[in-house]
Design a protein around this nucleic acid. Structure first.
Lengths: 221, 221
DNA sequence: TAAAATTAGAGACTAAAGTTCCTTAAAAAT
DNA sequence: ATTTTTAAGGAACTTTAGTCTCTAATTTTA
């Protein structure tokens, strides 16, 4: 009995005094570790044992916190999404609805090419195609920061008198997210490039929102 | 050895001469049987062995024809969808775009309440929530009869001079399907009622299509 | 009508999600 | 400081999608 039952260690702290992580600390570590895995491989290729091992912990620990593989992966992604939402909500208010949307789409383009943020809707097909429709809608789409942002833009535009929201249905805030999702799944491309994003904004979304622009705005036909 | 190795039989033909089904006949039987299962239970609760047993055949037979559980279930649903598309394409051309769409939505409402056609987008959450995003988009959404139908309506409307399709992007034909999908997943309701459908058409889709109506049409504000 | 080629049927096998139970470390309570 | 409670670690176990191989029925070809 020379070696202790489990010489658990990570990459740095090699030998003794291995500080068993608990609670929030462990949880944060696991999510960070999982995110790291998702960035390397696609959803189906990741196993729960891999997640556990990669985080230097055990499967039981995972299931004690999350209900399923989809759960933990989406939770990991959400840690990113949250920071991203903060980053997004910094810059807007360009002075016009179209400007705000264009800025948002530009930002999305940057994120998608930066490859480090290959999530949210980006590379969804590649990375998250294996996730179930129910999980996606329950735990991801419904807490969509994109729609949230769009709503804000419209509210600003409304204050400026640029749009009339009296007959504007709530569901219309979700259109950008829906159309993007559709676009991501429609192509076999791994990435979606800027011109594609531009096309979606200019030829699909802006025309669709035109009826709600007040006279004098955007009637450039 | 009194009894033969496998006295395979269904419900009716009890004893001998059990006609081993092959090819198209078997395939059709399996799909019908699978459809029957889906109508009873939700996707996750169905196992491949259940599908095989219910169709009085074997799992190998299933995997010889379809690549996955999602595949066979979606294939089974598509047998319905096909008939449904035929049924749908009979009646339209009410003389106006809005009329055509209203008629279509009315039909969808009927199908959804008839409960026998509890598929396509209806009861999707209940029945198909377990299916993966990739499978859904690859094998279902992309061959969407709804979008096909919408396109036809627009083409008719264009011929009548009711709409101007010069700047009408292809993606706009998919909006009804997308918005409906979103609606189905957004609620916890099992069914979606007529008033809900009516709301989606009147307050989300029609306003969105308004910019493409030619002057004099639909400018009822 | 016999031989050859297909394809169905049966069942064992693998991999991975999710469960369960037990041991052990660490924190909280006494 | 010792006991009690909580949570992590480890590992066996269950279930089900998907694979593989062999046998037997049915059709095709000669």
């Amino acid at each position: 009995m020379a070696n202790s039952p489990h010489d658990q260690q990570g990459s740095s702290n090699a030998s003794t005094t291995q500080h068993r992580r608990r609670g929030k600390e462990l949880e944060a570590d696991i999510l960070a570790s999982t995110l790291n895995l998702i960035e390397q491989t696609k959803y189906e290729a990741i196993t729960m044992d891999m997640i556990a091992k990669h985080a230097h912990t055990n499967k039981s620990v995972l299931y004690r916190r999350w209900d399923s593989k989809a759960d933990i992966v989406l939770a990991a992604l959400r840690t990113q999404t949250t920071g991203l939402a903060a980053k997004m909500s910094q810059a807007p208010d360009t002075g016009s609805l179209e400007g705000d949307l264009r800025d948002l789409f530009d930002r999305i383009g940057t994120l998608l090419t930066s490859m480090h943020y290959a999530n949210i809707i980006g590379l969804m097909r590649e990375r998250l195609g294996g996730i179930s429709m129910r999980d996606y809608f329950d735990k991801f789409a419904r807490k969509n920061y994109l729609s949230q942002m769009v709503r804000t833009f419209f509210e600003h535009a409304s204050e400026r008198g640029e749009v009339d929201l009296t007959h504007f249905d709530e569901a219309l805030y979700d259109l950008p997210a829906l159309v993007l999702m559709d676009a991501f799944y429609a192509t076999d491309d791994t990435t979606i490039d800027r011109s594609r994003l531009d096309h979606i904004l200019s030829d699909v979304l802006m025309p669709v929102y035109r009826p709600f622009l007040t006279a004098g705005n955007g009637e450039t036909k």
